[in-house]
């Protein structure tokens, strides 16, 4: 298959029906992790065409020609993202961290469009009508068993405030 991975062209051998997670990991990006394997825990989160997806459920064939970013690419030129998590000590075992960081990037960069996917005012959206998107709602798809989330939340707020 052919897609862009962290800004570079990637041509890899992949079955269209295999999870995108396996494909990006085989391509050397082992930051995204296999946790629950059913799209609940968020450890495998990657960005596909600007939106966070659970790469364990996202089929490789759906990412044909897509623009895919993993934690490696998102943090490479973004010291503010790294520092936000490091300074807040927003991690412990680190297994969920690549997914948390990836979603945090999206929280700060996502298009805030009425009714758009993930938009603050979309149906059932994060902030309610006209509300400020709530970090807790936006990050609820990324489980962490270690930290109790307080530090992660602080890191995401800090990073978002810088954008």
């Amino acid at each position: 298959m052919h897609f862009r991975l962290n800004g570079q062209t990637a041509d890899v051998d992949a079955e269209p029906t295999e999870p995108l997670l396996d494909v990006v990991r085989r391509a050397g990006c082992t930051g995204p992790k296999e946790g629950c394997w059913i799209g609940v825990c968020g450890a495998c989160t990657v960005i596909v065409d600007g939106l966070p997806v659970s790469a364990c459920l996202y089929l490789a064939g759906m990412a044909e020609d897509a623009d895919v970013w993993t934690v490696e690419g998102l943090t490479a030129d973004d010291p503010a993202l790294v520092d936000a998590f490091a300074d807040a000590a927003a991690l412990q075992c680190g297994f969920c961290t690549p997914g948390q960081v990836t979603t945090a990037w999206w929280v700060a960069h996502r298009p805030d469009v009425d009714g758009g996917p993930g938009g603050a005012r979309s149906p059932g959206g994060a902030g309610g009508p006209g509300g400020d998107p709530d970090v807790a709602a936006l990050m609820a798809g990324n489980l962490c068993r270690c930290t109790g989330y307080q530090a992660i939340r602080a890191a995401v707020e800090t990073y978002r405030a810088g954008h």
Partner: peptide, 11 residues
Amino acid sequence: VRVDAVRKIVG
């Protein structure tokens, strides 16, 4: 900053 922070954050 934790000794393992950066390597865990960047994957």
